[in-house]
Structure formats: structure tokens, C-alpha cells
Design a protein around this nucleic acid. Structure first.
Length: 573
DNA sequence: CTAGGGTTAG
């Protein structure tokens, strides 16, 4: 940026030609203050509707994560053209607002502005979430109708987007790939990537072998397939055969060994990496954290800081998530204190991760204070604190938080209801539980999932209403899982399991599972406290727990985490 | 004369 010239000689600003020259790098400006100053000059020079200046201004606001300002610039323009809409759509995607991006696309169509071949790759990127297959199909139809399929970027994007739409999508992607007249490296890579994502590893490998040429992306994609399937021997073989390896190749291998629990191998490869980026560090640290190896994780975290890499949200969030999963309060504290030391500004996402981490590590009060200190909260924040509160046995508080959340205009989702139902189950609020369970579908259109049924069944079972519990098990439109059968009542504690297992055997509901009884009992945590709550995995695995009050929670966790093994309490057998 | 696009690892 050579904007300084502009400020030193403000008189020249009136010269639009020079001004444009100075603005040629505007879209790369990432300094918000500077950007705002330039914006003022642009408006003064009346250039804000200039076809070359406006998109740059939008792009730079988008880069500075100021989507609202980007939209503001856009709204000032009387008759936006295709290019400007493309820029706006891309801005929404960059700021992770895919639905806004789609909205901009539809608005554009309504205002009679025709999309071009640049529009589709952007819009396709915005197609994710529910019903995405239909969206992608719709866009595919557009593309065919208006003949943009001749630009290789468009079908390539379609293949990628279709690949993200599940089993039906991969069918469509295959079909498109087959009929494409011209295929480039990216088409092949996207198709292989799609097959890998769909779990069609053999087919992916076959396609990989058929490729006319391969680049590092191709190799990394198929390597990722083996890693995903935990086939580390094949992955290693491939890794050795690769003509060129980059950070991604190494990181993929490291994450694979972390996944299968071979930390020695993971560490060896990590140490051999010549250039380690943030992703690489995050993978190995999270790997140690997920294994519960807190000291290794912390010492690597320190080394990462010493390496002087500039940290951002994504690694913090994934490390905190690993802490939450394994109950590593020490590492969680370490991450937070380093953020404080570096005056790192916590985004909503990072704060959410902190709330979740503290709650799952048994520090509900700290979770609450992070939550209360947040500038902006989203649905995830509320869900995290509601779950945390329910998990710690603060039933009344959970329900209060729930109504506060609604008062503040948030619409609960299925996760929220898991938390709310759990609180009811734990407190023995049968009437309230039934009420919320009904509300969920009737008022919010949320179809109950296995976790919700789990809460209700547990609610009935704990209240001694075994008939009611069983009725629900048999009438619910879902297959009962081990956790459902593990629901307990406080008095007999074992009646439902034993009965359930007998039923299970006689009905062969669980015929796909071996050692049904053991599995059911091994997972026999009250669903209210575990299944739905994303309890740390270690707790999930082995603990048998009767009707313990929440006060027992910390004690049990401490035992669990210190001994690194499951604790058996009040086992029904 | 000037902008803007796709694939892989967290």
C-alpha cells in the first residue's frame, strides 16, 4: 500500500486519476483505521459508486471482518452490477454468512441482474447445511440453462458442492464428472476428494490411479482418505511414495497417528517436519490433549508460543475443545492465560469454547463468568451455558437461563432442548419435562432425536414410571441404543436394564451389537448426564452411575481424571 | 490501463 502519499498530499485527492492509481491496492488493505480514512476520501472525491473502487472497498472491509461496513458500502450504490454482487456474495462467505450470501444471490436475481460465470463458484460455496442438495441442483439447472458449464471453474465447483451433500450428492457429482467434456486437475482432485468424503476409499484410490497427472493436492487428498479410515499402514506407504511432500502431507500423517493413538509415531513425524505451521502445532497439541497427556500438550503449547507463530481463533478453539473433551483444566487455563497475556481479543466463538471447556472441566462458575463477560452472545453461547448449568445440577438456574435466552430473542434449537430436558430429568421435574418435550416439536418444529428420547426415558425411569419409560422406548420412531437401555431408576436401578436386555435379546433389536448386555451396562450413564451432554469421552466410556446428585459430579470427575480410568459406582450388577 | 473464481490438512 502506498497510501501515505495520499495523506501527505491531500490536494491531489481531487485528481481522480491519481486517486485511482493510489487505490489500486485498496482491496488488500487490512488495516481498518487506514481503510476508514481512505473511505472518507473516496466519498469526498465522490468515487464511492465507481465501478472499480466500490468492489475494492467492499473486499477490504470484508477482509477486515467488517461485513456490516461492506454491506453499507454496497447499499449506497444505486444500481449494483454483477461484479458488485459477486464481491458482496464473496464477502458474506468470507465472513461465514452463507445464508446471507445466498440471500444476496436471490436478491440479485430479483433485481434482474444476471449472474455470470464468476457468480456460481461463490454461490455454490454458500450452499451448505440443510437442504443443500436441492440448492445445488437448482444452481446446476441454472448453469446448464445459461451455458456457464463451459467455464471449467463452474462444473468443478459443482462437483465439490455436490460432494458435500451426502450419499445422494456424491451420485450427482459422479454423474457430472462422467459427462464433463473437459476435465482438469482440479476436477479430478475434487472428485477424488468427494469420494473420500463419502467413504468410498477404494473408488477414490482407483480414480487417483487413473488420473492423467497428479499434484501434491491429489496425493494429500488420497492420503487423507487413508488417514480418515485409520489405515495408517497404507497411508505411510503412500506417504513414502509421494514425489513431493508439503506441510499438509506431514500434518495429515501426524493427525492420523494421533487418531490411532500412536503418539510416538506422531511425535516423530512432527519433529521431522521442517516447516511447522499453526495447523501442524494444533494437530499435535490436540492429539496429546485428546489422549489426556496434559503435560506433553502444555509443553508443546509453550514451544509453539516460543516459535513465535501468530495464533488465531481456529487453533485456540480446537485446543479448548480437546480440553473440554478430556477434562484438561490445566491446559485450558494455560490457553486462557496466554490469551490474556497477549491481549488476544476473544471472539464469540472463542468465548463459547471457553464456556464449554470450563463447564466440562467442572468449573461452572468460571464458565458463567466468561459467559457473563461476553460482548456478543449467539445461540451456541446460550446452549453451552445451559448445558453446563444442567450438567452441574443447577436445574432451576438452567430453566431461568432458558427463559432469559428466549426473552433476549434467541430461538432454541435441538441442542438447547437437550440441556433443558436434562435439567428436568436431573431434578425430577416430570411435568416440566413433558411440557418442554411437547413444546419442542409443537412450537419450534424440532423433531426429537435419540438424545431427547433418552432424557425423557430417563426422566420416567428415575421417577419409577418404568411402564411409561418402556412405552416411550417402543413407540419412539428411532432404534434404541445402549444409552437408552441404560436408563435407570433410583430404587431398583437395574430393573430397566435387565428387562431391557431381555427384550433386546428376544426382539433382536440390537442384533448388530455383540455382548449386548455389557455394552448396555458399560454405557449406563444416565442419559441426562452423559449422552446428550457431550460429557468428556472418558466419563462416557465406562462409568456406571446410579442416581447421583450433582454434588457428586466433581468428586467423581476428580477421581476419573486423576486415575485416568472409569469409576464404578452403585453398579447394578 | 484498472476488480473478482475452484481442490487438500485444524
Amino acid at each position: 500500500m502506498q497510501i501515505s502519499v495520499l495523506f501527505q498530499a491531500p490536494s491531489r485527492v481531487s485528481n481522480p486519476t491519481l486517486f485511482e492509481q493510489k487505490l489500486s491496492d485498496l482491496h488488500k488493505c487490512t488495516n481498518l483505521n487506514q481503510l476508514k480514512q481512505i473511505q472518507a476520501l473516496i466519498y469526498r472525491a465522490n468515487l464511492h459508486e465507481d465501478a472499480f473502487v466500490a468492489p475494492k472497498l467492499i473486499a477490504s472491509f470484508s477482509l477486515c471482518r467488517q461485513i456490516a461496513l461492506a454491506v453499507q458500502v454496497f447499499d449506497q450504490i444505486q444500481e449494483p452490477n454483477v461484479q458488485l454482487y459477486n464481491t458482496l456474495i464473496r464477502a458474506h462467505i468470507q465472513n461465514s454468512q452463507p445464508s446471507q450470501a445466498l440471500a444476496a444471490f436471490f436478491e440479485m436475481r430479483n433485481r434482474g441482474v444476471w449472474p455470470d460465470n464468476f457468480t456460481y463458484p461463490f454461490v455454490l460455496k454458500a450452499c451448505s447445511g440443510q437442504d443443500s442438495l436441492r440448492l445445488v441442483q437448482m444452481i446446476h439447472t441454472h448453469v446448464e440453462k445459461y451455458g456457464f458449464g463451459s467455464d471449467i471453474f463452474v462444473p468443478n465447483s459443482l462437483i465439490d458442492s455436490y460432494s458435500k451433500c451426502g450419499s445422494m450428492g456424491i451420485q450427482a457429482a459422479r454423474k457430472l464428472f462422467m459427462v464433463m467434456v473437459e476435465r482438469d486437475l482440479v476436477s479430478w482432485n475434487s472428485m477424488v476428494g468427494g469420494l473420500v468424503k463419502a467413504g468410498e476409499l477404494r473408488e477414490a484410490r482407483q480414480l487417483f490411479d487413473e488420473m492423467p497427472e497428479r499434484d501434491t493436492v491429489s496425493w494429500n487428498t488420497i492420503l487423507g482418505g487413508y488417514v480418515k479410515a485409520a489405515e495408517m499402514d497404507s497411508a505411510f506407504e503412500l506417504f513414502q511414495k509421494m514425489p513431493e511432500r508439503n506441510v499438509v502431507s506431514w500434518s495429515t500423517m501426524v493427525s492420523g497417528y494421533c487418531k490411532v493413538g500412536d503418539m510416538a509415531m506422531a511425535r516423530m513425524l512432527f519433529d521431522k517436519m521442517s516447516t511447522k505451521n499453526l495447523v501442524a502445532w494444533t494437530i499435535i497439541i490436540s492429539g496429546y490433549a485428546e489422549k489426556g497427556l496434559e503435560n506433553d500438550a502444555i509443553s508443546l503449547y509453550n514451544k509453539m508460543e516460543e516459535a513465535g507463530l501468530k495464533i488465531d481463533d481456529a487453533p485456540i478453539i480446537s485446543i479448548l475443545a480437546a480440553c473440554a473433551e478430556s477434562g484438561l483444566l490445566g491446559l485450558g487455563n494455560r490457553v486462557q492465560s496466554s490469551m490474556e497475556r497477549n491481549r488476544y481479543k476473544c471472539s464469540t466463538h472463542v468465548s463459547n469454547a471457553l464456556v464449554d471447556m470450563y463447564a466440562k472441566c467442572g468449573r461452572f462458575n468460571r464458565a458463567l463468568s466468561v459467559f457473563n463477560g461476553m460482548e456478543k452472545r449467539d445461540l451456541v453461547s446460550w446452549n453451552a451455558i445451559i448445558q453446563g448449568s444442567a450438567m452441574h445440577g443447577h436445574e432451576e438456574e438452567t430453566l431461568q437461563l432458558f427463559s432469559r435466552m428466549k426473552q433476549e430473542g434467541f430461538v432454541p434449537d435441538k441442542v438447547t432442548f437437550v440441556g433443558v430436558l436434562c435439567a428436568c430429568t436431573h431434578a425430577g421435574f416430570v411435568e416440566e419435562g413433558i411440557h418442554y418435550f411437547q413444546t419442542m416439536e409443537r412450537d419450534y418444529g424440532i423433531v426429537p432425536q435419540i438424545e431427547h428420547y433418552g432424557c425423557m426415558i430417563d426422566l420416567f425411569a428415575r421417577d419409577g414410571c418404568l411402564t411409561e419409560a418402556f412405552r416411550l422406548v417402543h413407540t419412539m420412531p428411532l432404534e434404541p441404543n445402549a444409552i437408552i437401555w441404560g436408563s435407570q431408576n433410583p430404587s431398583g436401578a437395574s430393573s430397566i436394564e435387565l428387562d431391557g436386555i431381555q427384550k433386546w435379546k428376544s426382539n433382536s433389536i440390537g442384533s448388530t451389537l455383540e455382548n449386548t448386555a455389557e455394552k448396555a451396562l458399560a454405557a449406563a450413564l444416565p442419559s441426562s448426564l452423559c449422552a446428550a451432554m457431550n460429557f468428556p469421552r472418558k466419563v462416557k466410556k465406562g462409568i456406571l452411575w446410579s442416581h447421583s446428585g450433582a454434588s457428586a459430579l466433581d468428586g467423581i470427575r476428580m477421581t476419573l481424571f486423576s486415575q485416568q480410568r472409569a469409576m464404578v459406582k452403585d453398579s447394578p450388577l
